[in-house]
Design a protein around this nucleic acid. Structure first.
Lengths: 223, 223
DNA sequence: GGCAATCTGATTATCAGATAATCTATCCTC
DNA sequence: GAGGATAGATTATCTGATAATCAGATTGCC
């Protein structure tokens, strides 16, 4: 026998509000109806509606200001990941799968990156600046921050926004590996980043792919 | 002058609940104090506390069941990608980016799929069954459903759960292309799927990759 | 004794109604 | 016209209550 659970009101409502935003093609800052209005529309109490909107607000999907009303918010991954990063279940995600996923994602964008680098020199400039800052960094925290930024910049350089968003998500789950990397090993990381940029700028996508794969799979030892 | 906003009660409370979970070293399924207890502890009304817990529940950080109480939730990537669908980068993503992202994602998993197919014959069986059903289908709705299932099965066959979750998200945004595909063109799709499975089962990853790329990029004409 | 149905207490789910805080826009004064 | 006071709308938060749900104890039957 299956335990069927009565679907919760607020989840349905939250879903409907999202649908409403999409259907009305609302963008950041656009107004939504008032709480009372929405509650009446959905046929629920204002309180239940509130629980739904508060959850959405927590995610940044809507914003709510006293005296103004509800507006569509600007969701950012940072806000979500901030609340997730502490959760112990993140430690249960299969590390090998995370590594394989990242390899596929990041090596996959390299052809796109190489192509765009030829057309826009500022991309190479940006990556090289990051490598330099990496080289002169001295503490773990800075290294980690720069490593994340390097890989995000790489994804951004592909121009494929969906993959950038997904990449940010993977990074959250990857956090714990980075924290266990030792000082001497970060030095290798610098050189690795350097070689990736060099290969890309030379147009040698295959070499960049091999180096990047090695760079990410390096974390396997830490499993 | 900066507009300083009074920090909202529920945000503080949400934060404190998270701190509590960490401090008590609670894991998935562990019990939290009751709503009344927590409200009293934090010195707020039960309602305000509820808004905080509902928001956390929405994220999957806590679970709440009537008659039981609050427990620490079980987080999974799927739940998060659901909310990712509102990420502005995805909402405004242009079609070409969606296509490129899908190509990277799906061709990227093929080596993994081929490897696992050798070890587990049920994977090939499952894919072939889908192709057959595809062949005997006669209406647009069925075709679309089967196409989605085929590609999802392909991703699942890689065993990389994070990518499966992300793939499903991309499919939502791909919907509009599929609906504009004509009847005659679906026939090509069947053969395309057939060739992909054949190549994979023969261990020819390169051929499968080329075919899959062609299959997805076919949608470019529809932009 | 073993087992199933029932009851009970605890807890969340949802509601209604009220007051406070906050913001926008208008109106009034000079 | 500029600037401040005021009113109206809206969210923020609270109190108190009822319904729904569930786990475990109790009861009754065989």
């Amino acid at each position: 026998m299956q335990t069927l659970r009565r679907p919760k009101v607020r989840d349905q409502v939250a879903y409907q509000i999202q649908q409403y935003i999409v259907a009305q093609k609302l963008g950041s800052g656009d107004r939504l109806p008032t709480e009372s209005k929405l509650a009446e529309t959905f046929g629920i109490s204002r309180l239940s509606l509130r629980e739904a909107t508060k959850a959405l607000e927590f995610l940044g999907i809507v914003e709510s200001k006293a005296g103004v009303g509800l507006t569509v918010g600007r969701i950012d991954m940072g806000r979500i990941t901030e609340h997730l990063s502490f959760h112990s279940d993140l430690l249960d995600a299969d590390p090998q799968q995370l590594i394989d996923s990242r390899v596929i994602l990041e090596t996959g964008v390299l052809p796109h990156v190489a192509r765009r680098m030829k057309a826009d020199s500022s991309i190479e400039q940006q990556l090289r600046t990051l490598v330099d800052r990496f080289r002169s960094a001295r503490d773990l925290k800075t290294w980690i921050a720069l490593d994340i930024e390097f890989h995000r910049t790489l994804l951004e350089a592909s121009g494929l926004k969906p993959l950038v968003a997904f990449g940010e998500l993977l990074h959250v789950f990857f956090q714990r590996f980075r924290e266990s990397v030792k000082k001497a090993e970060w030095k290798d990381g610098v050189e690795s980043h350097q070689r990736i940029v060099d290969s890309l700028s030379a147009g040698d996508v295959a070499a960049a792919t091999a180096e990047l794969r090695k760079h990410i799979e390096f974390h396997q030892e830490r499993i």
